[in-house]
Design a binder for these strands. Sequence first.
DNA 1: GTCTATATCGGGATAGAC
DNA 2: GTCTATCCCGATATAGAC
Lengths: 207, 207
Amino acid sequence: MRPEGRSMRESILAAAVHLFAQYGYHAAPLRDIARMAGIQAASIYHHYPNKQALLIEIMETYMVRLNASLEHVLKEYDDPLQRLHEAIANHIRMHTTYKEEFFIIDTEMRALEDEHKAQIISLRDKYEALLQELLQDGMERGVFRQCDVKVASYAIIAMCTEVATWFRPDGRLSVQQVITSYRQFIAEGLLTTSGITHMPDERAHLL
Amino acid sequence: MRPEGRSMRESILAAAVHLFAQYGYHAAPLRDIARMAGIQAASIYHHYPNKQALLIEIMETYMVRLNASLEHVLKEYDDPLQRLHEAIANHIRMHTTYKEEFFIIDTEMRALEDEHKAQIISLRDKYEALLQELLQDGMERGVFRQCDVKVASYAIIAMCTEVATWFRPDGRLSVQQVITSYRQFIAEGLLTTSGITHMPDERAHLL
DNA sequence: GTCTATATCGGGATAGAC
DNA sequence: GTCTATCCCGATATAGAC
């Protein structure tokens, strides 16, 4: 990084985050990013070589951060169910806390030029591999049922990522309540597990 | 719809679907859509008033179709678990069959101008409401565990939608296998349900 | 480090001939 | 119904002063 000018660099990036998330990469004019950062469009080029560099910096920074947080969870815990619980909580917390940044990661892959796309995709693959490792280990230890770990990892990531699109900090549910819901849903599913299964007779009259 | 010209209208829309999905709405030039349809850019305006109209037609057509298919499932079946199974299968089949169209619906909401955004969102809300109705009914009949039906519906939709991003018809798993995996995952979750829970002793040496 | 001025390009959309 | 020609605008990016 450059020795000075740190603060304006960050202001520009923060503005880019807002506008890329709100309008999309291609629909967000550099002029608007500059205005939000309090400078002229041309001045951005003193801090970043071009518009694409803003996108890359956002995506890389937060994918690296996400991977580090999951690696921390895997290092910290050993029990498969606890690991899964912590991974779910971590994923949801990261995605709701850095809502705009991860939204950009999830929707602007197409906007990446080829050279850097591979780098970002490899970071995403890394994250998936870490989660799959967790699931595989839990399966081998008999905690999780036999299932396709790739498919399971995709399902978990998709549902936990999407939380950020509807979650509101001042809404009906707290983050912790949402995390608890998702943990139970992922671990146990929707069906009633009690011995009283379906009460088919009671339902028969509704047919 | 117009009396004639049906075929070129459809060619243009098909080209728009491809290019919007591949590059995004803003990054897909009308000239490229025209070339793919075999005409000049200006000729598109004989069939559609502007670029935005292409996006609206794609989104509306397939959201209406998706809602109709779920309504059909709810009408056809009564048992909550069977309804859920059919809804999952329907969602995954629709999203893998019309992969590009639903990808556009999921990623280009931002590109909609305000007047039409409300209409598309109401169609999406309708779909969520239908699924929530299914879940609520199943909960009241004791088939599904007590849970937040809104949260559950979001989770199910997110995970089943995302299948389309990685599923390949010539890949390792068939659509039917994927559907079966998701049904089980959603209904029963990841945990081993058998009496043999975790075998804690066997795992102890790994600590 | 930020500015003004400007180059250059490509986009959506329109006019009017055929 | 499709064409050619063109308008007009806004985009990224550059040059060079301060």
